[in-house]
Write a protein that binds this DNA or RNA. Structure first.
Lengths: 221, 221
DNA sequence: ACCCTATTTACGGAATCCCGTAACTACCGG
DNA sequence: CCGGTAGTTACGGGATTCCGTAAATAGGGT
């Protein structure tokens, strides 16, 4: 079982809560950090002190405050740590339930577990810890099928780009101009309309607003 | 000081964290609830058992799950409790930082404190408890000026509902009809247009799609 | 009662979106 | 070379949104 863990969450109350979960799993040597930079430094220092952490539990989103910060999100923290600590088990503990996000964290950085903040967060954290100690990964039920979901293969990068531009407030005409200037094809207003129509069909959206809302919820953009 | 408190939050980890804060304030007799209905019943029962709670700490938003629930938010819980327990001190502990919301909770229901979930949530909760025990109210710094300043660049529940309906794919005309049928005012198409315009202004959105995307990112809807 | 102000509602024209139809182009197999 | 097909572009008209102006309504204060 793990000996020495670092918990990273900007909310002090949540930090305490996670601490409690670790204690009840007999992990008693626990450090806390409320900023990603702080977490990064603590991990570095722990290595130098020959008392490295063997488990990291981190949130994804951190509110910015008066402090200057270099690492601004849990994802950036993981990215910064992976090269030097490729084997450090990482549990992401976050509100975020977007499958796309989970998938990219698992595939790109090889995180060990993804636990959604929710009613049973504590239970699921414990479960994650046990699974990881047996060298297995863990995903909360809400996002359990993040990896095997090949349900939206009919959507390609062009579609994503298109919807993303919609969500950025561009009109269809502006998107057409943009695509022309980027030599992206198809770029005619008509084709863009047609694509949007097809996407509305696929996602059963009433209009473009609805389409953007749905795809945002799915984590596609 | 308080003897017996009830903590209501749907996240078990947060519940544990708040518990810890109470313990460090020497409030050791603490009950927890993860649903509003559960909280309501526990308070009722405690009174019958002649061991009433003398402090309530509750979140505002609760995720719905498979369980049927009658009281769906902290606000509704407070509303349900106030008639029977007008003197019970209530601390709202929530992510929500909208001044409008804080103002209405203080003015309508006379809550004793409003603490924002954040980096110093635990510290502020302690501070709130001390203030209340001296019969004073407490507001987190983020929302401290909720009562005196009447900032008109504020978003209220109506706005949220409006944007939410947009995100569900309703046309402005449909929203107008819906609001009329729900006796929500204002409900005319013209007023709805005007509101959306104002919101686009506030959030610097180019169009309605952009507005929905932005507010979704902010977690407002 | 009155004025003053803020909110709600109404209306109209321009821009944009929505949706169907149809033409044009590219590519492939025969 | 030709026919078939998928993808792209073009166009038109109705619906909806966008945006400015203005009238009607509601409250508050003197």
């Amino acid at each position: 079982m793990f000996k020495r863990a670092l918990v990273v969450d900007d909310h002090d109350v949540v930090n305490e809560g996670v601490l409690k979960v670790l204690q009840s799993n007999n992990i008693l040597d626990v450090a806390k950090a409320q900023y990603c930079d702080e977490a990064y430094l603590k991990i570095k220092k722990a290595t130098l002190d020959k008392a490295p952490f063997d488990l990291l539990i981190s949130d994804l989103s951190f509110k910015e405050d008066y402090k200057e910060s270099k690492i601004k999100s849990g994802e950036e923290l993981v990215e910064a740590l992976k090269p030097d600590y490729p084997t450090l088990p990482i549990i992401i503990y976050s509100m975020e339930e977007r499958l796309q996000k989970v998938r990219s964290l698992v595939n790109t950085y090889g995180i060990s577990a993804y636990v959604c903040k929710g009613r049973k967060g504590a239970v699921e954290l414990s479960e994650a810890i046990h699974q990881i100690s047996k060298n297995q990964t863990y995903l909360s039920p809400q996002v359990a099928n993040a990896l095997n979901s090949n349900n939206n293969l009919e959507i390609d990068d062009y579609d994503i780009e298109l919807i993303k531009n919609l969500s950025l407030g561009l009109s269809q005409h502006e998107i057409s101009s943009l695509f022309k200037s980027q030599n992206v094809s198809p770029s005619s207003l008509s084709s863009i309309e047609k694509r949007i129509n097809r996407l509305k069909d696929i996602f059963k959206a009433n209009n473009a607003i609805h389409l953007v809302a749905i795809t945002k919820d799915l984590g596609l953009i």
